[in-house]
Structure formats: structure tokens, C-alpha cells
Design a protein around this nucleic acid. Structure first.
Lengths: 170, 170
DNA sequence: TAGACGTAGA
DNA sequence: TCTACGTCTA
């Protein structure tokens, strides 16, 4: 068990196919399809600008939508998850900036879907499934439930990839 | 990569020998020598009472001491690590209670030592080394740097086990 | 140094 | 629900 410490990759990762399943975020990091241990958005430099190379869509934020081919994904920041700090407007930096830059750069983004399952032991676990490459089509801001601004990104699955709908039952 | 979900074990774990090294807390959980992902003390029921079966001594708390055969180990709780909440007196529950109970039960406690190393990449990582079985000899309370009560436990290495001093350079 | 769609167990 | 000697990147 050794974390992949090599170069980040844009697009397909050798050895990983659509539909491959993983049990832990750490595995995504080891295989190299999504490096951050907790953050939902990974980014890298491409031709001098920061673009997103992968996201994890665990479906935990209100406002997110997931069809077969289109994903509406919330940006990061604003301490939506944090308990102690008051919520803030999200800023166009880090992962959010990278996703925005991916629109004009037209670079592909790997999407990993989190699927919540209840084990026989009645414990709730999340399984991660590689869903293939998407482009980021547009973004906008919304006011979240807490009254603060949230970035929203619309991603569309690049045609011609193997279907995943059977496995995800969406 | 699958987390060990079987019965917790008191004493030696089959297949794990003194001096075995691990890179992540998750590995300790998989192998089964220390199940909690973050907590330093693991406990289990033994003859009706809760005793400690393993601790991780990463040497992060003030007041901890580590000789070749004796370890002074701080209890858990009181939000010593937590940033936002004010510190509190530690309570004799969970891991602290289990370590206390281990004294009269005379049950062995697996000790895993954390060793901080600086990688070639100049990153600081912690490696975990299995140090063998200890007994808990006594415990007391101290006033910590923050003015709150902290439980302290004295553990002593059970004689007759392979030496580890060369590997740990202590 | 702090943030991040983490994990398991009590 | 919350705690816990986590682990990585920026």
C-alpha cells in the first residue's frame, strides 16, 4: 500500500476502466485517479493554468443533481461541512477555479461516483465507481440553504464511453 | 484492501512479529493489531470488563516518556487536539477506563510506536512499528499544560520478547 | 498551517 | 451523533 506520488494525469488513467469499483478514498489516491484524501476536486497545471482533472461526486450536497450524462456539482469551500465556523460565500479559487478553467480549456475531468450501500452488518459504507470522462460546460452561482453563495458546475459525459447505468441504477 | 472486521484479539496477533513496520494507520486496522483509525487506544471486552488491547504511541503529547522498556502514555479526551473547543479534564471512560482496567486484569497490551521520518522529498511521515506486548503497571492524574487533568499510564514491556532497540534507535 | 464530499467505533 | 496520537495538498 503506497500512495501514488508521481505526476498527476489529465484524462484516462492507464489500467483504470469505466465501472471499476473502489472501497476507500485512499484507493483512489493509490491508483491515481483522484489524489486528495477528502477534497472532492483535484486540480493540476495544464498549459500554465489550473484545471480540474478529477472530482468525487458522493452526492452529499443539496442542489447536486445526477442524471446518466449530466452532473450538477457544488463547489468547495464556505465551510458547508464544518460545524463550528459560520458559513461563507464560496470563493473562485482552488478546485472551484480549476473547474471554471476547465470550461474554456475543454479538458476532460474524471468523475468518480460515490454510492452509499448498507452492508449486512447494517453499517452504511460508500463505494466509489469510476464513471469516465466529462467536460465542464458551464457554471453559475446560487444562494445555498444557509444564505451564502455557492458555485455550481454542470458536467456532461463525453459520448462514446461504456455505459454505467446498470451498475449505478440511476 | 479490506478492513479487518473480525473479532478483536487480546495479546499476540497471528502473522505479526515484533519489528514489523507499517506505513499507515489503515494498515494497522487491516492487519488487526490496532483497529481505530485515529484513536490511540483500542479496547475490548474481556471477562465482562473493558480492557485495552492495543495503543499507538506516536509521541505527540507532552509528558509522554519512552524508554526501552517503560512507556508513560497520556490518556485520551479533553480535546487536547481539538482546536476550537476549550480543554477539559479527561474522564475515566473509553480508552482511559480500559487502560485502568488492564492493570488489575493483568492483560497484555500491544504497543505500536510511531516513528517520524523525513523522506527524500523532505516530507514528514510517520512509520508505525510493532513493539510487542506490555502490561499496564499503574496510572495517575496530572495537570496538563492547559491546567486540566490528564490521565497518565505506565506501561512496562513483558520480558522475553525480541529486542527492538536497534530498529528504533532509542 | 489549515482545509478537505474521510472512516471506524462507541 | 461525535470523537479520535489521520493524511494529503496548497
Amino acid at each position: 500500500m503506497e500512495v501514488n506520488t508521481g505526476k498527476k494525469i489529465l484524462g484516462e488513467v492507464p489500467g483504470v476502466e469505466v465501472g471499476d469499483e473502489f472501497q476507500y478514498r485512499a484507493e483512489l489516491a493509490i491508483v491515481g485517479i483522484h489524489r486528495p484524501y477528502q477534497a472532492g476536486i483535484d486540480s493540476m497545471k495544464h498549459k500554465g493554468i489550473s484545471v480540474a482533472n478529477s472530482i468525487v461526486d458522493a452526492g452529499v450536497y443539496a442542489g447536486d443533481k445526477h442524471n446518466a450524462d449530466v452532473i450538477i456539482y457544488s463547489g468547495q469551500g464556505g465551510n458547508i461541512v464544518e460545524k463550528n465556523k459560520p458559513p461563507e460565500d464560496q470563493k473562485l479559487k482552488k478546485g472551484n477555479l480549476a473547474l471554471k478553467n476547465s470550461i474554456s480549456a475543454k479538458t476532460p475531468v474524471r468523475v468518480i461516483r460515490g454510492r452509499k450501500e448498507t452492508k449486512p452488518s447494517s453499517k452504511l459504507v460508500t463505494t466509489y465507481v469510476y464513471d469516465g470522462l466529462y467536460t465542464v460546460d458551464r457554471y453559475w452561482q446560487e444562494t445555498g440553504p444557509h444564505g451564502k453563495l455557492v458555485y455550481m458546475f454542470e458536467l456532461r459525459r463525453i459520448p462514446g464511453q461504456p455505459k454505467l447505468s446498470k451498475k449505478l441504477n440511476i
